[in-house]
């Protein structure tokens, strides 16, 4: 059974994520350019971690998060282009699953 997340707690977590993005952006002005992709990858990991408490995680998202965590532990240089290509494809699989699970909507029923 998954506990329902406290909305106030969720708001705080999202605010901290926004703070992380801003702090990363500010830090990157004076840090090596190569840190940029790493900060963005970690932002993706933090975002995916927020999905777990309300049961929204799906296997593809979990794979992405786990692979990012594995990359943090790696003692050998990471092939970032390959890693990112694979992570993006994994995210696309996850998102495609959501689309196919939802009932098709009639575009003509949208308000004008």
């Amino acid at each position: 059974m998954t506990a329902t997340p406290d909305p106030a707690s969720r708001d705080t977590e999202l605010a901290r994520l926004a703070a992380y993005l801003l702090a990363s952006s500010r830090s990157l002005l004076t840090e090596p350019a190569s840190y940029g992709p790493i900060r963005l990858i970690d932002a993706a990991r933090r975002t995916l971690a927020l999905l777990e408490p309300d049961g929204a995680a799906n296997p593809h998202y979990n794979t992405v998060k786990t692979r990012i965590e594995d990359s943090h532990r790696s003692k050998t240089p990471i092939d970032l282009p390959t890693l990112l290509d694979e992570l993006c494809l994994q995210m696309a699989h996850g998102l495609k699953g959501i689309h196919t699970a939802q009932p098709q909507t009639d575009e003509h029923s949208e308000p004008a």
């Binding site: 705080t12 901290r16 994520l17 703070a19 992380y20 702090a23 990363s24 830090s27 900060r39 970690d42 943090h72």
Partner: peptide, 15 residues
């Protein structure tokens, strides 16, 4: 914990 998480939000180097 709550204070720690807020400080961590401003520390991108803390993974």
């Amino acid at each position: 914990p709550q204070r720690l998480l807020s400080v961590r939000a401003f520390a991108p180097g803390v993974i």
